[in-house]
Design a protein around this nucleic acid. Structure first.
Length: 587
RNA sequence: GGUCGCAUAGCUCAGCUGGAUAGAGCGCUGCCCUCCGAAGGCAGAGGUCCCAGGUUCGAAUCCUGGUGCGAUCGCCA
C-alpha cells in the first residue's frame, strides 16, 4: 500500500477520462506527473503538478486543466478538497479516514508495511567491503560495510533479489607480503630475533598467526628458503585473515552470501576467457600509453603493453591488462570477476545479474570509469553497473580529532569502534551522512542521549511506545497488534494525530525513492524526522490531556495506542533495513 | 595538467532525481517547568543555495565555463 501511488493512479484515471471526453488531446505523456507531499504542510496533504506538466504539450493553460481535474478529483470519497494554487499546482486534502486507514494497514502488515515490488524480483549483486585479506578491518572498511549492507537490505525491501558479495583479493603481491610477515612472526615464535623491513606488515595481529603456524607445522620451515614455504604460508595466512575479517563483519552484523576468491581466477582459464570475450569485440590490442599530462613521473619510459580499449566505453585512456613482463595487472582479474558476475549460472537456471553495484572507498575513485567500461563492454551494455564511493571517516574523541597512524599503531579498527559504541550505534551513525560526503565520527557524541543524536532520538521514540504499551497492559487494556488493528481508529481525529499518520504514510514512498537512488541514508533521515513528529505529539500531551496515548476509556486508549504502535512498527522496519536493533528501553 | 566528488543559515548537515515563501539539529534571543509525559517545551532572529552564463512556465537541483577544498592519475592492490 502506497497512498501516493494510489492517488497518482486516481489522477491518471481522471486524466484519461478527460482525454476520452475530448477535454485533453490524445497521446499526452503522463510520465512526469507526480503526486508528492507538499513542502509546506499548509498547502494540503498532497500536491500534483499534472496540470503544469501537461499544459504545454496539450496547448492549454495550466490553470484550466487544473480546474477541470480538481472538479473530477473532488468526486472521490478520499478527497475532501482539491484547490488550484500558484502557477497550476493542485493541492489535495484527504479525508481523516484515509490517514486512519494507514494506521490500520500498518498494524495489519507489521514490518512488511512499505515493502515494495518496485524491484520486480530483479537480481542485483551488491559487492562491498572486499578488503585485502592482510589484516583486520578498519574504520574506513566499516563505513563501506555498513553502507553496502544497508543498501542491500533496502533493495531487498524494495523487491529486488539481492546477493551480498565480498571479493577476496588473495591473488596479488600483497598476500605474498602477508606471507613473509607471518613467516617472520613464525620465526619469532621459534625464539628468533626478527626485524620487519619496509614492505612487510608489522602489526601485532600477526603474532598469534605465527604462533598458530608454529603449532601446525613445527619447525619444518625454519631457516628454509622462500620457495619451500611461500605457497603454504600464504594460504594459511590468508585463511587466518579471512577468519578475522569474517569475525569482524559478524560483530557488525554483516553477513555475506558469497565470498569470491580472486585466486580462483588464476590458472583456470577464466581471466583468459574474459579477455577473449573483449578481444572478439576488438577491444584488446598491443600499444604504448601516453604519459599522464602535467605531472610526469620521473622514471617514465614508453612500454608496449596489452591494453583494453576502455575509451570505446567512456574511459579517458585505455588501460593495461598485462604487465610488460607478461604477468596480469590487477585490472585483469577484476575484469574476469565482473565477467563472472555477468555470466554466472544461477540456481534457478537464469544467467548472471540484472544489475551490479560495487561499493568502493573514495581512494578507488579513479577506478570507476574503467570498471564501468569493462562491464559495459562485456555485457554489451545490457547490465548496468553503479559504483558507490564512500568518503573518509574522520574520527574524534570528545571533539578532538583522533589521529590514525599505522606506524604508531594507533589506527582504529572496526573492533575498536564496535566494542566501544556497539554495532547499532555504529551502523546508524554511519548512515546519517550520504555516502559521498565525508563523515565525522565522535566516540563520545554518538553515545549522547539528546535530540542532537539521531540514533538516540529514534530509539527513544521506540522505547516510549514500548513504555506506553506496558502501562496500558498493566491497566488491563489489550494492546496486541490484532486488537489494535480492530480499534475504532475514527477516534484519531486531532490534526496532530493525523499529521503523524500522514508521516507514516510517506514510508512506502520513501523506500522506493531511496532504493531508486541507492541511498540508504534517506532511511536514517526519515526515521529521525518521524521520531521528531512522534515526540512532538507526545510533548503536546503535556498540555492537552486528550492527546495523551493513555485515556480513561479503553476504546479511546486503543485507538491512540494503535497510532503509537504503528509508529514503532515503521521505526522497527526502518531500523531493520539499517541493520539496527530497536531498543525497548533506554538505560 | 587530466579525472571524480564536494561547496546550502554562525557551525554540522538534509533537500524526496525540475516545483510554491529553501528545511532540521546545534548555537543565539525571548518566554515557559517545582500537579514528573521536562533524559525538556514553545516562539523568534538568522540565506547572494561558491561565481558567471544557459536550458524552461519554473533551477539549490539539469548543461557550459570558472573558483575553492578533497581523492586519484601507466606494471602498487
Amino acid at each position: 500500500m502506497n497512498l501516493f501511488a494510489d492517488i497518482r493512479a486516481l489522477v491518471l484515471s481522471d486524466l484519461a477520462a478527460m482525454v476520452a471526453e475530448g477535454v485533453l488531446p490524445e497521446g499526452l505523456s503522463t510520465d512526469n506527473v507526480a503526486v508528492e507531499p507538499p513542502r509546506d504542510a499548509a498547502h494540503g496533504d498532497m500536491a500534483t503538478n499534472a496540470a503544469m506538466v501537461l499544459a504545454k504539450p496539450a496547448g492549454m493553460k495550466p490553470r484550466d486543466i487544473a480546474e477541470t481535474l480538481a472538479a473530477r478529483l473532488a468526486n472521490d470519497p478520499r478527497i475532501t478538497s482539491a484547490e488550484v494554487a500558484g502557477p497550476g499546482f493542485l493541492n489535495l486534502r484527504l479525508a481523516p479516514s484515509v490517514w486512519q486507514g494507514v494506521v490500520g494497514a500498518i498494524l495489519a502488515k507489521g514490518t512488511d508495511f512499505g515493502r515494495s515490488d518496485m524491484g520486480a524480483g530483479k537480481r542485483v549483486n551488491v559487492e562491498y567491503v572486499s578488503a585485502n585479506p592482510t589484516g583486520p578491518l578498519h574504520v574506513g572498511h566499516t563505513r563501506g560495510a555498513v553502507f553496502g549492507d544497508a543498501l542491500a537490505s533496502l533493495l531487498d525491501f524494495a523487491g529486488h533479489d539481492v546477493t551480498r558479495e565480498y571479493y577476496i583479493n588473495d591473488g596479488g603481491a600483497q598476500v605474498d607480503v602477508l606471507a613473509r610477515s607471518v613467516y617472520l612472526r613464525y620465526l619469532e615464535a621459534h625464539g628468533q630475533e626478527v626485524a620487519f623491513p619496509d614492505g612487510t606488515y608489522p602489526g601485532d595481529y600477526l603474532i598469534e598467526v605465527g604462533q598458530a603456524l608454529k603449532e601446525k607445522v613445527g619447525d619444518k620451515f625454519v631457516d628454509k628458503g622462500e620457495q619451500f614455504w611461500l605457497d603454504e604460508v600464504r594460504d594459511y595466512a590468508t585463511e587466518a585473515m579471512m577468519d578475522l575479517i569474517r569475525a569482524d563483519l559478524k560483530a557488525l552484523g554483516v553477513e555475506m552470501d558469497v565470498f569470491y576468491s580472486e585466486k580462483s581466477l588464476y590458472g583456470t582459464g577464466r581471466i583468459e576467457a574474459a579477455l577473449d570475450d573483449l578481444r572478439a569485440k576488438g577491444l584488446i590490442y598491443e600499444g604504448v600509453l601516453e604519459p599522464p599530462k602535467g605531472k610526469k613521473p620521473e622514471d617514465w619510459e614508453p612500454r608496449e603493453q596489452t591494453l583494453f580499449k576502455s575509451t570505446d566505453h567512456g574511459d579517458d585512456v585505455d588501460r593495461p591488462v598485462m604487465k610488460s613482463d607478461g604477468a596480469w595487472t590487477y585490472f585483469a582479474p577484476d575484469i574476469a570477476y565482473h565477467y563472472d558476475k555477468i555470466t554466472r549460472k544461477n540456481p534457478d537456471g537464469t544467467t548472471g545479474f540484472d544489475a551490479l553495484i560495487d561499493v568502493f572507498g573514495a581512494d578507488h575513485g579513479g577506478y570507476v570509469k574503467r570498471m564501468k567500461a569493462a562491464v559495459s563492454a562485456l555485457s554489451g551494455g545490457t547490465v548496468p553497473l553503479d559504483i558507490k564511493l564512500t568518503q573518509l571517516v574522520k574520527l574524534f574523541k570528545n571533539g578532538q580529532p583522533f589521529k590514525m597512524s599505522k606506524r604508531a599503531g594507533t589506527f582504529v579498527t572496526l573492533r575498536d569502534v564496535v566494542d566501544q559504541v556497539g554495532p547499532g550505534v555504529t551502523r546508524f551513525h554511519m548512515l546519517t551522512r550520504k555516502n559521498d560526503a565525508p563523515l565525522d565520527f565522535d566516540f563520545d557524541k554518538v553515545l549522547e542521549q539528546s535530540r542532537e543524536n539521531p540514533v538516540f532520538y529514534v530509539q527513544y521514540a521506540f522505547a516510549r511506545v514500548t513504555s506506553v504499551l506496558g502501562k496500558a497492559e498493566a491497566a488491563g487494556v489489550a494492546v496486541d497488534d490484532e486488537t489494535l488493528a480492530q480499534a475504532d481508529l475514527s477516534k484519531l481525529d486531532h490534526d496532530a494525530e493525523l499529521a503523524l499518520a500522514a508521516k507514516l504514510a510517506e514510508w512506502p514512498r520513501l523506500v522506493e525513492t531511496a532504493a531508486r537512488s541507492n541511498e540508504p541514508h534517506r532511511v536514517a533521515f526519515y526515521l529521525y524526522d518521524l521520531a521528531g513528529t512522534f515526540h512532538g505529539l507526545w510533548n503536546r500531551g503535556n498540555d492537552v490531556a486528550s492527546l495523551r496515548f493513555l485515556q480513561e476509556d479503553a476504546a479511546t486508549s486503543q485507538a491512540k495506542i494503535a497510532l503509537a504502535r504503528a509508529c514503532a512498527v515503521v521505526i522497527a522496519a526502518g531500523l531493520d533495513i539499517l541493520g539496527v536493533e530497536p531498543a525497548k528501553e533506554l538505560r
